[in-house]
Amino acid sequence: MTTPDSMALGNDARDMALTDSASNRRNVLDLDDFSAEEIFSVLDDTGAMVEVLGRDIKKVPTLRGRVVVTMFYESSTRTRISFEEAGKVLSADVINMSSSGSSVDKGESLLNTGLTLQAMGVDVVVVRHPHAGAPYLLARHLPKVSVINAGDGLHAHPTQALLDMYTMREKLGSLSGARVVIVGDVLHSRVARSNLWGLTKVGAQVILSGPTTLMPLDLLGGRGELEEDHPFAQVDVDTDLDRAIQGADVVMALRLQSERQHSGFLPSLREYIRRWQVTEERLGKANPGALVMHPGPMNEGVEISTSLAHGDSSVIEAQVTNGVAVRMALLYRLCAGQGNRIGDDP
């Protein structure tokens, strides 16, 4: 089941179906073309991968002979290493391609790089790119390669959203009806955007909070641009965090990039901290046992207090651990079922 309205939140990168069907997925570009059922099946597979990661010898032969290339045109620690570890635990050969020092910012050279990789017989390309839509360009033009979006511009970061949802489901038991408050710079957050797709599909209740200037325009006020049956029509925006956080099961703080302050989105950092920092005091208004999450890297003392980031409610480290398992589940899913039937097995 795909959602036809891909224009929400100002994204115009998608107008095509890049997967044949949910059961035989070739690319992971965003969660908008995932059904709830497929999300749950990825989360179930992730549980099996968590077991592999808990073994003394973390290695299974599943993707032997497959080649995974990570192409990161933007800096990253956890996502890149997480994909690399995921591939290696599954016995794939993982090659990291560095963009530093090269002029790869233009669409054409990205495409040529992709074509080169395809000609070399690469099976999966994991791409992070500062321009929204870059992974879609690769997916459209590389029929023999699976593309995983590891973050494109302000647009999407589907693997992060899946690991967030896995962590929530693991700790809360169920995602349906969970009240998830996402706090901070939602406007510039690809993590928030992919989480919105995923969480609304699985029936969670999402509340966005933060300065009005950092809220997505089409979710504010009268929601003029959204059809009533659009999944995001159920998303609430409440700029008053102290009110939004009441009864929350999950509080997810987003990274506040310092340059936002200089480009007129914030009156001052002090005001932001005072009104929207996730603190122990504010968490007291959430449900008992509420989870504190952060996609990282954190600005401790800005969007989240240091004591909370490392406190008992924080599942931030679990998010990182689960990130490897989610990416294993996705690599497995993309590499399976690609060939012709070569045998019949009970």
Binding site: V60, P61, T62, A336, G337, Q338, N340
Partner: peptide, 14 residues
């Protein structure tokens, strides 16, 4: 995770 026919299997679950 140990199959020798991963490519042939559609939508395999673990």
């Amino acid at each position: 995770l140990y199959r020798d026919d991963l490519q042939a299997r559609e939508n395999p679950r673990v």
